[in-house]
Design a binder for these strands. Structure first.
Lengths: 197, 197
DNA sequence: TGTACATCAGTGAACGCGCGTTCACTGATGTAC
DNA sequence: TGTACATCAGTGAACGCGCGTTCACTGATGTAC
């Protein structure tokens, strides 16, 4: 703790770490997380493979970092959408819209979190905590909306909100609506409204 | 067409093909489809790697076969659940229950179809047709239930039915409810009832 | 029923490939006096 | 301001590994006469 908060070297390290992660997201976007290859990333950065080991202990740690970044970003996005002054229904609508935008902006990022688990990989506790923080956000809104009702009701409604949005989003993002003649945005909006009640 | 429907050799081929696929399902259950390795399958069968090429042109064809089998099985399961004599609401309830049982019996089989797409793999037309046949099953039930209403309404309700069930199932199967204190079966049942309306 | 022949399942060696990871190194960057 | 030293980012060679796939083969199974 006696050293500077951010020496030049540390700043440099931070930048390189960020660039590595940025390249990873490109690769994840192209092929999904289970195909993530350190050597491919290094190649793309014009650097030798072993160089990456200066910045991440191994492949698992890199993936963990990506997962955490995704959770942090999603959590922050949702928190920002739910503005404290707004009534609960408005907040929930805003969160739903923000969630969809976030998912469509980077489908594989969404799938990295909520899709098929990466084989052999287990999310760290912080990821679970971040997921819980989003759930709490929903729970608070429904609790406020249902003032007086049973708390179990708010939990049920928050869960339902989540599963319904995810149901539409995950199928859309995975391409299961392709070729079907309807607009997923409308279905999503309808489900959002229904879940808010 | 002048040869026997099933010569001894053909019967044998069929059996081996089935055994290969059975082993594949074991591996898929253990690690997911993107990790499927021909050599590992061969090893597990006590046979050399190249031997499998007698039965499948390559890895892609094997995966296609697995995907098709999964679709066929799910489609047949749903058709069987929806007994023609029953009123539409009963048929839909039965389909929902059958779907959940089918998914939980082999989570990775469900995810192979409805989860994150396998990178670089594209489902064949027959798979799409089978998926459509399940959709038709739902559509028919809702059309019958909504006799007189707008047909667009039935489509909307069928889609909603599907996305809501998938929302609960996919999160459950991927382990996203782990550690949360509630029973996914109850949530699923509630969503089924709500979607049948 | 026996023999000659064709089919074809499975083998083992080999191919090129890319992977994650380690290691001893070199050269540039930053630090202390 | 200049020098001596420590830190550390990045290199290139090497490791062992498993993968999908091809190929020429051998030996068993089935077919035709």
């Amino acid at each position: 703790m006696s050293e500077a908060v951010s020496s030049p070297r540390e700043r440099y390290r931070g930048q390189v770490r960020e660039e590595i992660k940025a390249r990873c997201w490109e690769q994840v976007a192209a092929t999904g997380a289970s195909e993530l290859s350190l050597n491919a990333i290094a190649r793309q950065m014009g650097v030798s493979g072993p160089a990456l080991y200066r910045y991440f202990r191994n492949r698992d740690e890199l993936i963990t970092e990506l997962v955490l970044d995704a959770y942090r970003d999603l959590s922050a996005t949702c928190q920002a959408a739910a503005r404290p002054g707004d009534p609960p229904a408005v907040r929930l609508g805003a969160v739903a819209a923000a969630l969809r935008a976030w998912a469509l902006a980077a489908p594989h990022r969404y799938l990295l979190i909520y899709g098929t688990p990466v084989p052999g990989y287990h999310a760290p506790p912080e990821a679970t905590a971040l997921a819980a923080s989003i759930m709490t956000l929903l729970l608070d809104a429904f609790t406020e909306a249902d003032a007086g009702a049973a708390p179990a009701g708010a939990l049920r409604r928050a869960l339902t909100f989540w599963t319904r949005l995810h149901g539409v989003l995950s199928l859309e993002v995975a391409g299961h609506f392709d070729g079907m003649e309807f607009d997923p945005a409308l279905l999503y909006a309808a489900e959002t409204d229904a879940a808010i009640g």
